[in-house]
Computed example of a mutant assay.
Amino acid sequence: MLELRRVDAGLMSRLSARTALLMTLPPLLWAGNAVVGRLAVGSVPPLALNFLRWALAALLLLPLGWHALRDPSAIAKRWKYLLAIGLLGVGTYNSLQYLALVTTTPINVTLIAASTPVWMLMVGALFHGEHPTRRQIAGALLSLAGVLLVIARGDLQALARIHFVIGDLYVLVAVIAWAFYSWLLARPPATMQPPQRPDWDWAGLLLLQTLFGLLGAGAAAAAEAAITHAGVQWNGWVVAALLYVAIGPSVIAYRCWGVGVVQAGPAMAAFFANLTPVFAALLSAALLGEAPRWYHAVAFALIVGGIVVSSRK
């Protein structure tokens, strides 16, 4: 029995390290997505960018997850769940994020997105009976402090000078949608749990989620085109940007996020999501040729400290 406990403890240790890596990669890729989305303003309409991103992602996933399409009856039986995670994770969240980048500033987007752990904990408490612990609350405050330090660039008085616009509301709705999406991944209905769940691997499930999400993303892009009459200005940079957002922030990041949420829980995953503004600051500094400042290191320590505090038992 003692040897079994030692083996289990070692397995949990490796599992925790693997989960931490899985939860760190998506914020890095999503930080790059925010930078690309901001640079794409003027070249690709925001809702069209989201639709093209996920249409290309679906084509990339098709050779990997096509087997999930072989049983239409299994899909029809679970269409409500697939539609929900598709609209929340592919349609609503990403559409609103790109739309917000047109009308608001990156500093405001980061500030509002920093409330993700709070919404994760609220959704868990209100709809899933998962009440936050003191450590989770303390971890959320530490992570939020780190994000605010990055946003203020080391000058906390700068936070008082921030002005909010309509794009900020888009980000708030997007964050709430992401909280519900993450909890649906971690707490699926009985038809999506063994033994009732079909034999779908990660690629098949993500493909189905993407196809259902494209229903909403496509409708939004069509409405955008009808109202604004704006089109895509095709060039080499736009093609490269679409390839990046379709492969990195979509296929790779969503795969890692899905596994990490199931293993660590939505609340824990939300703390890792707060690494996004830190990575965004570092990527922006690299693209602009500016060296990282002292507050980047302090903010990173605070955010990681929040992860450690909330995960300790």
Rank of each mutant, 00 (worst) to 15 (best):
208 L>C: 10
194 P>S: 12
197 R>F: 05
202 W>Y: 10
218 G>N: 03
210 T>N: 01
195 P>A: 07
223 A>D: 04
197 R>T: 12
200 W>A: 03
208 L>H: 11
204 G>V: 12
223 A>S: 11
219 A>Y: 08
218 G>I: 10
221 A>I: 08
220 A>G: 01
209 Q>S: 05
202 W>L: 15
207 L>Q: 05
196 Q>E: 15
198 P>A: 11
215 L>E: 00
203 A>H: 02
213 G>C: 05
215 L>H: 06
223 A>K: 06
220 A>L: 15
210 T>E: 01
216 G>E: 02
198 P>D: 10
201 D>R: 05
216 G>D: 04
207 L>R: 03
201 D>Y: 01
203 A>L: 01
208 L>W: 12
210 T>M: 04
216 G>H: 05
201 D>L: 02
203 A>Y: 02
219 A>G: 00
197 R>W: 07
223 A>P: 01
196 Q>K: 12
215 L>S: 08
210 T>R: 05
217 A>K: 01
199 D>H: 12
207 L>G: 01
209 Q>P: 04
200 W>Y: 04
196 Q>G: 11
206 L>A: 00
205 L>S: 14
203 A>I: 01
195 P>K: 13
211 L>Q: 01
211 L>T: 02
221 A>C: 06
211 L>M: 11
219 A>H: 00
194 P>F: 09
209 Q>W: 01
223 A>I: 13
207 L>D: 02
199 D>T: 09
223 A>Q: 03
218 G>M: 09
206 L>K: 08
209 Q>E: 15
219 A>P: 00
220 A>V: 13
217 A>T: 09
218 G>D: 10
219 A>T: 14
219 A>M: 13
218 G>E: 08
218 G>L: 10
194 P>E: 13
195 P>M: 10
196 Q>R: 15
199 D>V: 08
205 L>Y: 13
214 L>R: 07
216 G>I: 02
215 L>I: 15
222 A>S: 12
195 P>F: 09
205 L>K: 14
206 L>Y: 11
202 W>Q: 11
201 D>P: 03
212 F>C: 11
204 G>W: 10
208 L>T: 11
195 P>H: 11
218 G>C: 09
199 D>F: 04
213 G>T: 10
194 P>I: 02
209 Q>G: 10
204 G>D: 12
201 D>I: 05
195 P>L: 11
218 G>Q: 07
209 Q>K: 13
204 G>P: 09
219 A>I: 14
216 G>C: 01
195 P>W: 14
205 L>D: 00
210 T>P: 06
220 A>K: 00
221 A>L: 08
221 A>P: 09
215 L>G: 12
209 Q>L: 07
212 F>K: 08
200 W>D: 03
196 Q>W: 13
219 A>R: 00
222 A>L: 15
222 A>K: 08
202 W>R: 06
207 L>H: 03
209 Q>F: 06
205 L>N: 08
212 F>Y: 08
208 L>K: 12
214 L>Y: 03
206 L>N: 15
217 A>E: 07
220 A>Y: 01
215 L>K: 04
220 A>Q: 00
211 L>P: 00
197 R>D: 08
222 A>Q: 13
213 G>R: 09
210 T>W: 01
219 A>S: 11
198 P>T: 09
204 G>L: 13
197 R>S: 15
204 G>Q: 14
222 A>I: 14
